[in-house]
Write a protein that binds this DNA or RNA. Structure first.
Lengths: 341, 341
DNA sequence: CTGTTAGCGCATTCAA
DNA sequence: TTGAATGCGCTAACAG
C-alpha cells in the first residue's frame, strides 16, 4: 500500500490554472458556462495534477449526496440481482450512485440496514416489498426523500410503488393449472413472518382454489427464505406421501420447484404425468432444465429501471420545487406454460 | 414524498442538551470519555430530535470515508454474490460500508466504474481478478489506499491478494478426470480478452493434458461471459459432432455444464457413459440436478471475508502509522467428484 | 463569463 | 471531562 499522500484539491487546480475555485467547479459540473479557453486550461491542469473531485465534499455543500439507497432481501438471487442491474443502469445515466444493502429477508434487519444507510443522506430509497417496521417507516418519513417500494403492491404505500400483486400471480398460476386439467393442486411455500410476498402467493393459491370450487388445500411450508434448493426435493416427497392424489404442485420459487423436479427424476416419477410442477421467477435453472419448468416471469430488470426512473423523476421535480404525487406503476407478469404442466 | 425539511444537526443536539458540539460528537463516536450523566442527556436529546448523524460530513472532517469499494464482474452470479456477502459481513462488523460496482466482465468498464467510485474517497478497494488497465492501476496507486485483488493470483499484484490459481484449478480437474479413466477430454470455455480467469482455466486444461501425455486438444470457446446456460447445450452438441470420440467435457463454469447436461438428457445421451461432464463453481444447479455435476468448489464467502479482513487490517495499521506490507492469501479449492464423471 | 463570500455538518487540535 | 476555534473540499448565492 502506497503511503497516504496529500491529494490535490480544487484549490490546487484553481491556483495552477490561474482561475478561481468556482470556475473549476463550473467546468466540472457543467453548470453555468465558461469560455472554451478556460475549459481547456482547467481540464489540462486537472489532467496534469491527477485531480480527482471529492463527491462527498461536493454533496455536503450542495445538499445532494448523489446516492440512492437500494435494499434487497439478498444479492444472491437472480431476480433481485437483475432488479439491481436495472436500477444501476438508470442511476448511472443520471450521475447517481447506488448504495446497496441486504436485508436477509427480515424487516428487523431491514430497519438496521436502513438506519445505517440513511446516515449517508441518500437522495432516494428503493425498497423491496411493502412490509416494514413502524420505525423504518418513521425514519423514511423523517428523511424527507423519495421512496419506492418494489416487488409488491402494499395496501398503504409509503410513497411510490413499482410492483405487482403476488396474490394475483398465484391466481394466474392456479388458473393455468386448472386449464390444463389439474384438480388436486398443492402449494409449497416458505414460512416467515417477514416474507409477506411468499405469504401473498400462498393466499392467492387458496383464494383461486376456492374460486374454482376446489376445497381441498394441500400446503407445505418450508423455512424462512432463502429456502435451499434441496428442500424442494424433500417437500415434493412429503407432499406425495401426505396427499398421494396430488396431481400438481406449485412452488413459491423456481429454486424449490427445480429441487423437486430433480428429486422426481431420482424417484423415477414422471413429470408432469405423475405430478405437474410449477415455479415462480423464471430462473435460469427452470428455463434450461429438462423438462423445462412452467413458471411466472416478471421482468425484474425493467422493474428496477422503472423504480430508478421514478426516483430520478421525483428528484428532478423536487429540485424544481414541484410537489411530487406518489405514483403506482404496475409491472406485468406472464405465465410461461412449459413442459412440467 | 414529504416536503424536504430542515434536519437537525449536531449543533441542534448540542444546544438542546446544553453541551458543546464536541461532547455530542464524542458520545456518538465513543472516542474520548464523557460522564454517564452527559451521555444519557445527549442520547435522550438525540432520540427526541430524531437526529441522524451525517457520515459524509464526518468523513470530510476525519478524512476517513468509511467506504470500501468493491468491484465485481456481475452481481447476478452466485459465486460473486457470495463473496460480496462475506465482504459485507466483515465490513459491517467494523463500521464500514460497501460501495458496490459492476464491471460486466470488462477491464474497460472496470476502469470507468473505478473512476466514478474513487470520487467517493473509499478507504480501500477490493477488485475481482488480476487483470486491469494501466490507467486503473495508476488511479489505484495515486489513491494511496489499500487494494485487494481477489479470485486470481496476479503475477504482478497491485497490493494485497486473496485468491487462487485458476490454472491450478483446471489442472486438478484434468487429474480427476484422468484418474477416473477419461482420456479424450474436451474443454468448453468463454472467449474474451478480459476474461483472464477463463483463459487461465483453459491454459490449465492444456498444460495438464500435456502432462498426462494427451496431445489431442478439443477446445470450444463460447462468447464473452456471462455465457448463457443455453450455450452449454449447444456447445456439447457441437463438441460431440466435431470430436465424436470425446469421453469427457470440462466447462469453464457450472452454468454451461448444466446446460450441457440437460441437453444430453434431451438427446438421450447417458451421462457420464456417453460423455462425462465437469463444471466449476459449485452452483446450486450443479449440486442439485440429476445426475449431480462434478465441479470445483471455492469458498467464495470466505474469500470475501478474508479480503475484507485484509482491508480492515491494513486500514488499522495505516491509522497507527505502520507501514503495511502486501500479503498474499491463498484460498483452497476442492474437486467434488460427483455423478457426472 | 468569472470571482468573492459564506457556509454545508462534522471532527481534529488544542486549551481549560 | 469538556469546550472553542479551525478547517476538511466543495458549491450556492450573489456581485461584477
Amino acid at each position: 500500500m502506497p503511503g497516504r499522500v496529500k491529494r490535490p484539491t480544487i484549490k490546487d487546480v484553481a491556483r495552477e490554472a490561474g482561475v478561481s475555485m468556482m470556475t473549476v467547479s463550473r467546468v466540472l459540473t457543467k453548470k453555468g458556462r465558461a469560455s472554451q479557453d478556460t475549459i481547456d486550461k482547467v481540464l489540462r491542469t486537472i489532467e496534469e495534477l491527477g485531480y480527482v473531485p471529492d463527491l462527498n465534499a461536493g454533496a455536503l455543500s450542495s445538499r445532494n449526496s448523489g446516492f440512492i439507497a437500494v435494499l434487497v432481501p439478498s444479492v444472491d438471487n437472480s431476480n433481485f440481482a437483475q432488479s439491481v442491474r436495472g436500477i444501476t443502469d438508470v442511476l448511472n445515466d443520471n450521475g447517481l450512485q447506488i448504495l446497496l444493502g441486504s436485508t436477509d429477508f427480515s424487516v428487523e434487519r431491514e430497519e438496521t440496514v436502513l438506519e445505517t444507510i440513511l446516515k449517508r443522506r441518500p437522495d432516494g430509497v428503493i425498497l423491496t416489498g411493502g412490509n416494514h417496521t413502524a420505525r423504518s417507516r418513521r425514519m423514511l418519513e423523517n428523511a424527507g426523500i423519495a421512496v419506492v417500494e418494489t416487488w409488491d403492491l402494499p395496501a398503504d404505500p409509503i410513497d411510490h410503488v413499482v410492483g405487482f400483486s403476488n396474490v394475483a400471480v398465484s391466481h394466474a398460476m392456479v388458473d393455468h393449472l386448472h386449464e390444463r386439467g389439474y384438480r388436486r393442486i398443492g402449494f409449497i411455500g416458505s414460512s416467515s413472518d417477514s416474507d409477506t410476498r411468499g405469504a401473498d402467493r400462498e393466499r392467492g393459491y387458496s383464494e383461486a382454489l376456492k374460486k374454482h370450487g376446489l376445497e381441498h388445500h394441500r400446503v407445505i411450508r418450508l423455512g424462512a427464505p432463502p429456502v435451499p434448493v434441496e428442500q424442494g426435493g424433500e417437500a415434493i416427497v412429503e407432499m406425495l406421501r401426505r396427499w398421494p392424489e396430488t396431481d400438481a404442485a406449485m412452488f413459491v420459487s423456481d429454486r424449490t420447484a427445480f429441487g423437486a423436479l430433480m428429486e422426481c427424476h431420482r424417484c423415477s416419477w414422471p413429470v408432469p404425468d405423475r405430478v405437474a410442477i410449477a415455479g415462480f421467477g423464471n430462473f435460469d435453472m427452470a428455463r434450461n432444465c429438462h423438462p423445462r419448468i412452467t413458471t411466472t416471469a416478471i421482468d425484474c430488470y425493467e422493474m428496477g429501471r422503472f423504480a430508478a426512473e421514478r426516483i430520478v423523476d421525483a428528484r428532478a421535480r423536487a429540485a424544481a420545487g414541484e410537489r411530487v404525487k406518489p405514483e403506482i406503476t404496475m409491472i406485468p407478469y406472464r405465465i410461461l406454460g412449459r413442459q412440467t404442466t
